[in-house]
Design a binder for these strands. Structure first.
Ligand SMILES: [Mn+2]
Ligand SMILES: [Mn+2]
Ligand SMILES: [Mn+2]
Ligand SMILES: [Mn+2]
Lengths: 220, 220
DNA sequence: ATATATTTTTAGACTAATCTAAATTTAGTT
DNA sequence: AACTAAATTTAGATTAGTCTAAAAATATAT
């Protein structure tokens, strides 16, 4: 049974929502993510359940089946490989790739994606630091914390971002923060949890909302 | 007014049919090409006419408006650039690219296609020898004849194919015939119009249906 | 010129994906 | 336990794209 583009987008949304909690995903949460009405979501959930892509308990919520998870992860693999292609080969910046990758992720051709993977030299992470699932749907998890959880006077490496919006990425560009950047936390203001960091020799004051959207790991 | 994927495919079909004759394109011809019923085509023709993409005279047929022609040519440009990408960068053979390009041609991103064009070094022809329209919809026409029209004892260069089906292209591969190949016509059998050619030192007998699907130009 | 065949359009129906409005279920609060 | 608020589902309608069957227009042949 073939999966439509719309169904693929629902599976991806459910997958991403599932990353944030172990509970069943609610109709409203999906509706918000997909930008559709809850009634439309209910209709789609029935279809996905018929196709054994999700387990659906009326009024309770949904979880992906293994089949559904593999389908979602395959789309995410394609999305992230295309983002690498756009940045590495076609001079896109990391804030320009997402919309195009949203289209390219639905192209159906196993050979295309495997050849692309090889052509890009089997990248492990996309331009935003997110891991690229392998052919079997395995995802390499690295332990990382948000910059808001960082310890004073410790140096970290930026390994990813949570918010991938163009506005946020442009903010990071402005302060020369990118994947691989060395960041030292100098001070934390207890009142609003803003932090002062050192990045490329300059100090930058950063609100908590910013620092919670940046992933870092200790610089060993 | 945005154009749907389906509308794009109709415009492309009408464009290609229009290349073969100066007359208006019939509903049935479009139906055959799109592989849909004539009644479905009629419905779509009304939509395309509403959007000023075609001129439609009931019971008479259609022609593309300038707006429609430019839209069609833009899709063909994308299709052919993607075909070059697949062959030049991703190890696809010329008989494998068409189906994937049919999907990729609908991706909407001017930056993507312009960067791809530059990345491929501004190719002028696709893997089947078809010209790639430029950004302004201009198409470079080269004078070429079909191999069936070739003169005995003259050497030609293969510059394209008419049929791009996998079966036909594999036949050409079998006899080492590709874009750029030198072909000398040795003999023509008047009975069935089959020809004997020399290609890479070997002689090959070829039926008229094959030779009418190969474009050549004189080797000057 | 009339009958027949072909082509094209219209009428009515179907599926996928969406919506609004109403009904139902669940959760929260006295 | 009963009431209210929030979340979810159902009912019915809409749009894009398709189909079959029937009607209308055009082309062909006697
Ligand atoms: Mn993305
Ligand atoms: Mn990404
Ligand atoms: Mn093609
Ligand atoms: Mn081609």
């Amino acid at each position: 049974m073939l999966i439509t583009l719309t169904e693929e987008n629902y599976l991806k949304a459910i997958y991403h929502l599932g990353q944030k909690s172990d509970k069943e995903i609610s109709t409203n949460a999906i509706a918000e993510k997909i930008e559709a009405k809850a009634s439309s979501v209910t209709d789609m959930l029935k279809k996905l359940a018929d196709k054994k892509l999700i387990s659906y308990r009326k009024y309770k919520g949904v979880t992906l089946t293994e089949k559904g998870r593999l389908t979602a992860v395959d789309i995410i693999r394609k999305h992230r490989l295309w983002e690498v292609f756009l940045v590495d080969k076609l001079n896109f910046s990391w804030d320009e790739v997402h919309e195009v990758a949203e289209q390219l992720e639905h192209i159906k051709s196993p050979k295309l994606i495997n050849e692309l993977d090889a052509y890009l030299d089997f990248p492990t992470h996309d331009p935003h630091g997110d891991p690229i699932p392998d052919k079997n749907g395995q995802i390499q998890r690295t332990d990382k914390i948000t910059l808001s959880q960082a310890v004073i006077n410790q140096t970290y490496i930026c390994v990813g971002v949570i918010d991938s919006s163009s506005d946020f990425l442009k903010y990071l560009d402005k302060y020369n923060i990118g994947i691989g950047s060395e960041i030292t936390v100098l001070e934390r203001e207890e009142f609003d949890q803003s932090i002062t960091i050192e990045i490329k020799g300059k100090t930058v004051v950063m609100s908590k909302i910013i620092s919670t959207n940046i992933y870092v790991k200790k610089n060993i």
